[in-house]
Amino acid sequence: MKKRLLYTAFDVVPAPKGASVRIQKMLEALGQEFDVLALVLGEPGMPDEESWGTVRVRRLIAPESHFLEKTVQFAEWVLQTALEWQPEWIQFRSLWDGFVLSEFRRQNPVKWQLIYEVHGLPEIELEHHFPELPESLGFKIQAQQQQVLESADWFICPSQVHRKWLLSKGICYQKMGVIGNGADPELFLPHWQEWPEVPYLIYLGTLAPWQGLEELLAALQKVKPPFRLRLVGKGNPRWQQNLLARVYQLGLTHAVELLDPLAHAYMPALLESAQIALAPLIETERNCVQGCNPIKIYEYMAAGKAIIAPDLPAVQEILEHQKTAWLYPAGDQAALTAAIETLLKDPLLSRRLGQAARDDVVKSFNWAQRQNQLLSYFRKVISV
């Protein structure tokens, strides 16, 4: 009889975000070994409950409310479900439900094994989303985060940068499993075409400040045309307005188009239309202390695109300069301009980098391998 595993994610699933892709892939794997019930967020029009193979998925479809109010509602729902269903394992992705679960276990005789899947850290991310957050509330959230770290039995994270952060917090390395993101090579088949008269550059993902899009626009202003840049993603209204204003200020309205996010199924077609793919991350705590493992990079690779990205540690876990991508010194705007010009002028180099990147995904970074790594980690944990 399979053991019960409750998987909780304070994310809308499915959604046009990398987090949603990872969650679905993790659940697909976990369903092979466990009786899985997943609790996620939903939007109006989504079913309250459905099955993905052997995995049951329930959604909290809450009316629009303040972010922190929704976290409380979600955490209470998770705790209630855990008490009713009595799983042996609970894997959670956010501080909000992790704190409620760990606090309840501290005060009551329950036998849950808690697995913290570490991604975004509130102590780093909240200031970007809510710059007016009271300092006292920030301190409270940091204290809750520390309690969750001390209470969790096991940890999963997507990059070595995340792992380094966990070690800095005193977490034993033997409790950790680093399970990176990936891509499905069979979905992102490359289509090599003649270099067009007007090459397209593309960026997929959130429009958040730490993604470096304003810096990218400044670098593009100095690139000799012709070219076009397509930004595909979503951000809060403040981020989006700042980005549009920057496009106008730099005189790039003729060369830059901003598209709303599309369902993940459309990503292969979007990438097929581009020659160069961009991930212009900047040096911030979000990228260098917390860490990241961008799914966009893996999907760029699977599609055989020439990739331009900074030489941040999180990026160098995935890409190698002049072998699978063109990496530039992080924060060096002139180097970013030069990187774009280099690939625009050299279609053969762009194709060589793209082919090598795809080969790496097929060999080392596909989702099937990541799923096997996840199950291997769980087998080790269960044996302990």
Rank of each mutant, 00 (worst) to 15 (best):
S273R: 14
W367M: 12
L95D: 02
S151I: 06
E317W: 11
P237K: 05
A143E: 05
F10M: 12
L231P: 03
L6N: 01
L375R: 14
Q322D: 14
L244N: 05
E186P: 05
K140V: 10
K111S: 03
W77G: 07
A302C: 12
L149M: 14
R370L: 04
R56F: 01
Q369L: 15
P44K: 05
G354V: 08
L244G: 04
G177F: 09
Y7C: 15
A325G: 12
Y173G: 08
I295P: 06
R106M: 06
L207N: 00
K17E: 00
F378G: 02
A265E: 15
K164E: 00
L201W: 04
G98M: 08
P109V: 11
Q373Y: 02
A279Y: 13
E214S: 06
Y248I: 10
E317V: 11
I141K: 09
T337A: 09
K222S: 11
V36A: 01
A302E: 02
L271N: 07
P294I: 04
Q240A: 06
G42D: 02
V110S: 00
M1T: 14
P131A: 03
L114F: 08
A303Y: 15
Q290H: 07
L137T: 11
F99T: 09
G31L: 08
R228E: 00
T324S: 15
G18W: 07
V72M: 09
A29L: 05
H321V: 09
L133F: 13
